[in-house]
Amino acid sequence: MSYKNILLVDDDADDAEIFVMALAAIDAKIKSSVENNALKALKKLREAKKLPDVIFLDYYMPYLDGSEFLELLWEIKGLKKIPVVLYSGQSGSAIKEAVKKFKHLKFLKKPSNFREVIDSLQEILN
């Protein structure tokens, strides 16, 4: 597994908890962190000594939506190389447009149960 340091940017505490628990079930060596505010996440990324291997990003959040976050993220030198996975409970037109606009972006619809979260994350992380 190539991703050992994962950042989740998601304002839903329940979804974040399930995500972290699923990562731990997949591999206890995976380090994960959660930020519930996209603006704070950008600030932490700018200041980070060690960057995440991948960012999972909820698209619909207060302060910045996923597209705005990506625009700002990729303006910061050194951060454009971090893979990003849009992680959302919805798959509406805004998300489809973001996936078209940001070529290397992946999309993962939030699964409905814990086993599906594990299976979906394993597929992305392997």
Rank of each mutant, 00 (worst) to 15 (best):
I26E: 00
P111Q: 02
E116S: 11
Y59M: 03
N37A: 08
I30D: 09
R46G: 10
A98S: 12
P62Q: 05
S32Q: 08
S93Q: 12
L121V: 01
D65A: 08
A38N: 04
V9H: 07
N113L: 09
V34H: 10
I118C: 10
F56H: 05
L73H: 01
N126E: 10
A94S: 14
L86K: 06
G78R: 06
A48E: 08
D15A: 14
S91C: 15
A28K: 13
K109G: 11
K43V: 15
G78S: 03
G78Y: 03
S120N: 11
E35I: 13
P52F: 00
A22M: 05
A94M: 10
A94Q: 14
S88L: 01
G92E: 04
P83A: 03
S33G: 13
S67K: 09
S120K: 15
S33Y: 05
F69T: 01
F102K: 15
K40I: 14
L51K: 05
L45K: 00
K80M: 13
K44M: 08
L8F: 02
K40E: 13
K50A: 04
I118F: 00
K29R: 15
N36D: 12
I18V: 12
K77R: 06
Y60R: 12
P111R: 02
L7F: 00
H104A: 15
S32H: 12
Y59T: 00
L42E: 07
S120Q: 12
S112R: 10
L86I: 10
I82R: 02
N37P: 05
D53V: 04
S120E: 09
Y3A: 04
K40Q: 11
N113R: 09
K100F: 07
F56W: 11
M61D: 00
L23P: 05
E68R: 09
L72V: 06
E68D: 07
V84S: 00
K50F: 08
E35M: 15
D10A: 01
V117T: 08
A24W: 15
L79K: 12
D12C: 05
K31G: 05
K50I: 10
I124A: 13
D119Y: 12
K80N: 12
M21Q: 07
K50M: 05
L64H: 03
L45N: 02
V34G: 07
Y60L: 14
K100A: 09
E71I: 14
D53G: 08
A13E: 09
D119E: 13
L8S: 03
A13Y: 01
L73A: 01
K109M: 14
N5M: 07
A25P: 09
M61N: 01
V9M: 06
S112K: 11
H104F: 13
A28S: 14
P62S: 01
A22F: 07
N37L: 11
E35V: 09
K101V: 07
K49T: 15
V20S: 15
D14E: 04
A22G: 06
V34A: 10
Y3Q: 10
D53M: 02
M21A: 12
P111L: 05
R46S: 13
L64A: 02
W74I: 06
L86Y: 03
L42C: 10
L70H: 00
W74P: 03
E17P: 06
N36L: 08
P83R: 02
I6W: 00
L42H: 07
I82F: 09
Y60H: 13
K101G: 07
E123C: 13
S32A: 10
K4V: 12
L125N: 02
S91H: 12
